[in-house]
């Protein structure tokens, strides 16, 4: 399959570039780690009777989703300089599969996100997180799904908005409500009726809820099922959209 070998080729190239500047992986982690360090301890107080003794089991899944939103969600940022430098165009003149141009990047983003998720979880363990390994691994699968869909949507947007100063605020404006509506900072159980209804329109709410159950060791719950379905639909839908746009723009 040429698509696969082309994708892997570009994946390796993009991963190389990312790994060469290890700093960029760390920079992507700054935001969630800061939230972990500076907001987590306050949350312990704000959620006195939430889910037994460990507020971290509530909070870390939310942080992982936040990591995805502000990491993979901004993936399009690294497409823009490549478009400006003509790298994308140079590749489009070659016989490489059009789809590989997207997949190679998305695969890189998924791997970077997984590394960051593992590191963030380890830091949280240091802070007092205790969660069953199976649940954590299950959550990581959801995180991967999230990264794939967010990254493809982000590239889709970058193709239509190829300037940083337009791209950044638009992503911010989309990502922030999604973040707040997912109950990442404070659980949506605190929300009044209208807000709770609204929050069900955020796909990330289902994923966070599913991951929270997984972190608590409850595997056969409705939330987990819903989260898995939403994650699956997101991946398929966003890849389909991203592919169409990439192939269109590049045909």
């Amino acid at each position: 399959m040429q698509i696969i070998s082309d994708s892997v080729l570009l994946f390796r190239r993009h991963l190389d570039t990312t790994m060469k500047s290890k700093i960029s992986i760390l920079i992507g982690m700054v935001q969630p780690v800061l939230y972990l360090l500076l907001f987590g301890p306050m949350l312990e107080k704000a959620l006195p009777d939430a889910s037994g003794s460990n507020a971290w089991q509530m909070y870390v899944p939310g942080l992982l989703v936040q990591l995805g939103l502000f990491g993979a969600g901004y993936a399009g940022f690294n497409l823009i300089p490549d478009m400006r430098a003509g790298v994308i165009e140079r590749m489009r003149v070659t016989p490489i599969s059009r789809l590989a141009l997207l997949l190679g990047r998305v695969m890189r983003d998924a791997v970077v996100m997984l590394i960051q998720a593992v590191m963030l979880t380890l830091v949280a363990v240091g802070f007092g997180l205790r969660a069953p390994l199976v649940g954590v691994v299950g959550s990581f699968v959801m995180v991967l799904a999230l990264a794939i869909s967010l990254a493809s949507m982000s590239y889709l947007l970058a193709l239509s908005l190829p300037t940083e100063y337009l791209f950044a605020p638009v992503v911010n404006t989309v990502a922030l409500p999604l973040l707040l509506l997912s109950g990442i900072l404070l659980p949506m159980t605190f929300a009044p009726g209208w807000l709770s209804v609204l929050s069900h329109f955020s796909p990330f709410r289902y994923i966070v809820d599913g991951m929270r159950d997984l972190f608590l060791g409850h595997y056969a719950t409705r939330s987990v099922l819903e989260g898995a379905i939403v994650a699956g639909v997101l991946v398929v839908g966003s890849l389909a959209l991203g592919t169409r746009k990439f192939v269109q723009a590049n045909s």
Binding site: L9, P81, R84, A85, V87, R90, T94, P95
Partner: peptide, 30 residues
């Protein structure tokens, strides 16, 4: 595409990549 080469007005190299790695990648793209 298999038979042509194209050099755009703005070039098309990644600023951070080395020329050698770009040349190798280009070969792999073909």
């Amino acid at each position: 595409r298999r038979k042509i080469g194209y050099v755009a007005q703005s070039g098309g190299t990644s600023p951070a990549a080395s020329g050698r790695s770009e040349l190798v990648l280009q070969g792999r793209l073909y």
